[in-house]
Design a binder for these strands. Structure first.
Lengths: 113, 113
DNA sequence: ACTCGGTACCTTGCGCCACATGGAACCGGG
DNA sequence: CCCGGTTCCATGTGGCGCAAGGTACCGAGT
């Protein structure tokens, strides 16, 4: 399938990023683990080709810091942890999301019930 | 501001399209009117530069049909009406949206309450 | 030793779509 | 006779999710 063409993948735009922040708000995690965890969530299944560029952006924007840690089961892991700015962004998005979600719900589920 | 760069505009991706379908599911509407109606909805404010290419895609995909109608207040209006296929797509997306929304809610609003 | 699957990191190129910008034409009122 | 409101459209840009492909480490099996 052509990249970025499915309807559901359009949906994830701008949301996935903040779902990662939400996961990191509980504990530092590494990329490969994030892919696995998101893989368990309906509608948020993703791949390494999405996660790593995304994590780079988070780093670039100063929303996360990273630390390398040895692994017993493979190459070293890069753990990502939220910065104060990252937490602020997450909180702000959570509010924005609620407003957006309610608007879409209102339009979309009016006649459907 | 650079086009498509704001965080909120990423959110609208793939959603706006189906919100338009939802609006059309009640009655045929024309482009300029759609911009006005979406302008009243928090988080879905958009512009003609977004709506008209979007409507072209809906037409291309056979989800809508159009009819021209004279206007007393300006140039003729192009009214868009849902096809059977369009209604099917809308119903399918509504289900997909609920699943997606619930997943995001779960991740995003876990610690925020 | 050698391969093989699992783990773990990364880059590159593509396609989609929201948006800014700008253009055209119609109308009514000052 | 111009100007704001209405109504349609096309073009170019930027961001991001994704497929594809590459590198390297580990343990287990042959």
């Amino acid at each position: 399938m052509e990249p970025g063409s499915t309807r559901i993948s359009q949906l994830r735009r701008g949301v996935l990023e903040h779902c990662v922040l939400a996961l990191l708000s509980e504990e530092p995690l590494y990329g490969f683990d994030l892919v696995r965890r998101l893989g368990d969530v309906d509608g948020l299944v993703t791949s390494e080709g999405t996660i790593y560029p995304l994590l780079s952006r988070l780093r670039r924007d100063g929303w996360v810091t990273t630390t390398w840690q040895e692994s017993e089961s493979g190459p070293p892991r890069r753990y990502y942890a939220l910065t104060t700015e990252g937490r602020r962004v997450l909180r702000a998005f959570a509010e924005e999301w609620v407003r957006f979600r309610d608007s879409v719900d209102l339009l979309l589920l009016k006649g459907t019930t």
